[in-house]
Amino acid sequence: MLEINNLKSRIGDTEILRGLSLSVNAGEVHAIMGPNGSGKSTLAQVIAGHDDYVVTGGEVTFMGKNLLDLEPEERAREGIFLGFQYPVEIPGVNNAYLLKAAVNAKRKHQGLGEVDAFEFLKVAREKMALLGMDPKFLNRGVNEGFSGGEKKRNEILQMAMLEPSLAILDETDSGLDIDALKAVAEGVNTLRAPDRAIVLVTHYQRLLDYIEPDFVHVLSEGQIIRSGDKSLALELEEKGYDWVREAANA
């Protein structure tokens, strides 16, 4: 589904991704781990198409299409979803309104008509119940005055409504207490599907206690230096990142 080959990217004058390769297939859950500054979030932003990151080399294809040719909104409509580490507040814009606009943008791209307002609300309420969210959130400004946990839950709600083929969740666990973490993880687990891939970008192993990955990759200095199954995450937790780095350099 997603093929990244020797990807290089910089922000300003700083080289961040230095020849990263990764292959993700439908139905798989990948965890990308690594120390701060290793390029985890950059990878997520580059896949989503953020302007600040300049791609200086390599290829990225998504379902056979050259992703780097597409605008961010086109990538989203093709089925890529990024759950932000710091979801931005948009005061005055109703949460339901943004959700509906997003759903309709995707439907239009797929040649479908606009979603019926009642049907939309019904589905949104169902998904919110699943995530343990108060339906009142629909009528509040996008992320306006939300707590950290509410923002992250809201991201998962958007993901649930948009039904992406590829979801990248950037540090979805950061800033969450254990109950919120469980709720978010449960939400993500219900969205696991044979036709959907999920990439978890995370610093800590603890999220992986709740969302079990098929693959774990360690990112360091803009490259994947080790890949394995979920046991790699446990090993990292025990031995720290230096251990992998030393092993890679040896």
């Binding site: 953020h50 909104e73 309104y97």
Partner: peptide, 25 residues
Amino acid sequence: ADQLFYCRQRGISEEDAVNMIVNGF
């Protein structure tokens, strides 16, 4: 720029995002 990117990542064009934010305002 962050607000616009957020909206675009949800499939909403930049122009529609500006309109949405302005109308909300």
